[in-house]
Write a protein that binds this DNA or RNA. Sequence first.
DNA 1: TGTTGATGTTACCGGCAGTAACCCGCGGGG
DNA 2: CCCCGCGGGTTACTGCCGGTAACATCAACA
Lengths: 216, 216
Amino acid sequence: MQTTQEAGASEPGAGERRRRELLEAADRVVLRDGPKASMNAIAAEAGITKPILYRHFGDKAGLYQALAVRHTDALLDSLRAALDAPAERRSRVESTLDTYLAAIEARPQVYRFLMHPAEDSQSSERGFDVGLHSAPLLRRLGEELAQVVGERVDLGPGGEQLARIWGHGIVGMMHAAGDWWLGERPCARADLVAGLTDLLWGRLATAGNREDGPGF
Amino acid sequence: MQTTQEAGASEPGAGERRRRELLEAADRVVLRDGPKASMNAIAAEAGITKPILYRHFGDKAGLYQALAVRHTDALLDSLRAALDAPAERRSRVESTLDTYLAAIEARPQVYRFLMHPAEDSQSSERGFDVGLHSAPLLRRLGEELAQVVGERVDLGPGGEQLARIWGHGIVGMMHAAGDWWLGERPCARADLVAGLTDLLWGRLATAGNREDGPGF
DNA sequence: TGTTGATGTTACCGGCAGTAACCCGCGGGG
DNA sequence: CCCCGCGGGTTACTGCCGGTAACATCAACA
């Protein structure tokens, strides 16, 4: 076995490499079978059997979380790049939205997996800790955006909290609209981006009522 | 053969009543056990056994959908009321947001169930029909809001499509922010409502940059 | 050589969704 | 009066999944 080329207790990154291989196999299966990929299928794809997966990731939620972290990191890098590009604010928002939509458009299976992960863990708690149930991806995106907004935009007193509200709100808007758009494809990506940006730019407040209808 | 409207056993609508009883039992179980409620548990709560549930609802997704429709209808009624109240536009938006948040605050278990229902069905299709995976509740809310906006607000040419984009976007914003808020409770409900409304009213566009930081 | 520890396997458990096959009371026709 | 069909109900099963215990293999080291 070509391994252990250097003496001592196994080379430093062997475990890490193995882990990455497993994650890539899991990725392939999830990409092929959707979120209902079974541990057996993932293990088979990786050329091993279930207990090894469990030794590496604890349980299914652990594997899913590891997968999610990978993809979320990648997506966050893209989004940060768009958010940091030198341009005026509206252009940044547009290109960030477009980056997100392009990502989910390119790999809808991955996206779907990220949005509906494990759901359970134990969490048999009372009504407490109702949180953290949904996709952690959305939370991370929301917090990240909140941080960017909070440290760059002057929102006056209480701005930190307002930034968090906006961060999660904007991310949710992006997500839901993207989800719907990905399913129905009612328009080009650019149209969706423009529409959402208009919404964020307050066009709902300034638009007039229609002559017909009860008004709004 | 219809029926035997006399004689105690079956009267017109008996099936409907039975169905409602079953749904109420299912509701109780879901409220108690969360989204992982099993068909066995639901059947036991209803005082019957599994196959009857399957005769009534086909499969678990069918039961879940029936439950979801009930709650979604109820929630939609509340929201429509808030949306139709006579007041200026901003007040309507605020009271609609507040109604939604009050609902999820009052019954977080029901809310969680509605947001993460079945996930599977068969749907082993290719990349097609990627849609309708997530909670149908969000889709319904989005379409409903799109309709209200589209028929009341003058959005110029292409307004129908823009209204749909906004409908789904606003609903997603409301949902994600509510989800986060419900989990962390970082502020009072009214603060969240105000923050989101500010966002929709374009405050992101008009806010200035902070002196420190790279600007936005 | 024998021990130890990592690595991998088989074989199993409990629980779930979903189904097949049986069961029982009741009304109607001979 | 008896039997027959039929709708509502149950028991008992299949197949799959997540998760685990116990066993097997092999390298390195004393």
